[in-house]
Design a binder for these strands. Structure first.
Lengths: 348, 348
DNA sequence: GGAAGATTTGTGAGCGCTAACAATACGTGT
DNA sequence: ACACGTATTGTTAGCGCTCACAAATCTTCC
């Protein structure tokens, strides 16, 4: 009969609870793990002891023997941006609901080295799976190379065929935006794009071009941006030179807001002279001057969705994954066009 | 001589490395922990074996015996908001630099129950310390009650005297904003405040009122807001009834942007008729229409700062903290006024 | 009433690692 | 050559938990 340390500064351990409840440590373990082979009365006694001692199981010991950390990792770049931070939130909520802890690794750069480092870091913590909020094509490639080492999904931007994940149908969103502007009567639509090597930027650009071509409209040169309001502003200054511009579709709301600012400064009125449409529907979009027409993404939903996918994979790849079932699962959410005052009929 | 499993799907463990390097597992441990009592040549051999096997130490086993998880927890509410997400990033960067992992717990509500739950959750993970990005007075109170159980600091809003933490001098920031408007020649300044039970909101309101009183100006009624652009918009509609309003100081940029929108809609021009100043300096502030005068906070810096404080406490409270040294350490950063086009001389 | 079965509990081993101590190797001065 | 101190390495014993299995208890039914 091992004497349990009753006092002292140390945390109580399982045998302490067992001693107090008058059972063996294994019975305590059974109660903790919800085993059905415990008499109700015994369970009560154990639970009472747990409560009295404020006992909390040692996760490290448990992880050591079960080889499961109950932890998922999240790699995120640019938590600064609206989308990523929203998705992180959605992921965390979903993980908690599923009984998992979340460990994060946020990166400044999306280069191969940083990506590998982040994955390593998370693997060192024995995470059971990783959700990645990455967007750069390069980062995706780096991740694809590591997919074998640990279950992984992408959230937000997806790279169908290489990595499983939950994403938004950016192309459809862009098409909807362009179609809306054409329907209003605009001859064509200009585009302020996101960085070349971002998947979302690419997809939105493709959608924009596709919609114009489908309607047999001229496809103007595409203006480069970097998601920031500043880059939108600069694009607008260039756009202002061309009197033919009547409609601009921006790859995100922040750039759209910069475009509005730039147009305004050069004497073009929105939406009287030029219509502007964004993408994302940030919370303040409805309260900008003018309120911004945009394409709404449900980032939170996306995070939840992605995590579900990840959990599924974690379950499957239990000991040795290898030849998984459907390796390239992807969940696609279709975004929604929100029409506000920044887009209107061309006013000639 | 225990035969090391050379193949198999299992991860290599320390004895595997030891066997390959021809040493004991303890020597491997020494190399891993940077012990000086290892011959350089031996160290090399061990490192080579580690590399060859792609061995990675089991954190659970290590945590079990050292009783240190190398993990810090972050509790955050509203990762959605600009400030919190920025601070989270700063915290993560600083933690990584210090060799700590970060586990997050984000909460939807700031009520007592949620706060306790989050702390429990993090404690279950055996985090060595917790950084809290909370703002509600109620949440602070709940935290203060748990401070004894684990080292804790607040980041962002601070509650001097109760919890240690890194914060911004919101009052000084507000004073600077108000003074700026008075200097421009405005008779008084109206205020759209944040939620009553947020510490930042309170401090900014106090600063606003104080500055007005210092200059012997009338203190108008304060308009309530909830940080959202929508609430700013609504406040503006109310403000519009009063022709005497020439300057508005908003407790954050999003509300300021809503105020601008509301004023614009009711025919008041910014800054010609009314000057508007915000707080935060969100990245797009400079590209709003008009560019927003605001008070800049260095959120990232703040996160770093707070984490440093936390690490300090973690070090100190090693086995049994109890009577700590300076229990109410606080780092205060002074924000900076950024003048842009949304504020100007009253145009009568 | 007692054997066969089901239910509930206890026992021992070991997950992979570090901490303490023991044991060796290496030099140095006498 | 010897003892002695110092570098370097090895040995043993857990950390707190779960797993596999053994033991004890309670049923049930002939």
């Amino acid at each position: 009969m091992s004497e349990a340390r009753t006092a002292g500064g140390t945390q109580p351990v399982m045998v302490d609870v067992a001693a107090l409840a008058g059972v063996s440590h294994q019975t305590v373990s059974r109660v903790l793990n919800g085993s059905p082979h415990v008499r109700a009365q015994t369970r009560e006694r154990v639970l009472a002891a747990i409560r009295k001692l404020d006992y909390r199981p040692n996760t490290a010991a448990r992880a050591l023997v079960t080889r499961r950390s109950q932890t998922l990792g999240v790699i995120s770049f640019d938590t600064t941006l609206y989308g990523p931070s929203q998705m992180l939130y959605g992921i965390e909520q979903a993980a908690r609901a599923a009984g998992y802890y979340i460990s994060i690794a946020s990166l400044r750069d999306q280069d191969t080295f940083s990506v590998h480092e982040a994955v390593d870091r998370l693997r060192d913590q024995a995470v059971e799976g990783i959700a990645v909020i990455a967007s750069r094509v390069s980062a995706m490639a780096a991740l694809a190379r590591q997919i074998a080492t640990v279950p992984m999904v992408t959230v937000g931007p997806t790279d169908p065929g290489r990595l499983p994940g939950a994403g938004v149908d950016n192309e459809a969103g862009a098409r909807a935006a362009v179609r809306h502007l054409l329907d209003l009567g605009h001859e064509t639509v200009h585009h302020v794009a996101g960085p070349d090597d971002w998947l979302e930027a690419k997809a939105r650009q493709v959608g924009w071009r596709g919609a114009l071509q489908d309607h047999g409209r001229p496809v103007p040169d595409c203006l480069p941006g970097d998601w920031s309001a500043r880059s939108g502003y600069q694009a607008a200054l260039r756009l202002a030179d061309d009197p033919g511009v009547t409609a601009v579709f921006c790859a995100n709301d922040h750039m759209a807001l910069g475009v509005v600012r730039g147009l305004h400064q050069t004497g073009r009125r929105v939406p009287r002279d030029v219509s502007v449409v964004g993408f994302d529907d940030i919370p303040e979009a409805a309260f900008l001057t003018p309120p911004l027409t945009t394409v709404r993404q449900h980032f939170g939903e996306l995070g939840r969705c992605g995590l579900e996918l990840l959990l599924h994979r974690v379950q499957f790849s239990a000991p040795t994954a290898a030849g998984d079932d459907s390796s390239h699962q992807v969940a696609i959410v279709t975004p929604e066009l929100i029409v506000r005052a920044s887009s209107a009929k061309p006013g000639r």
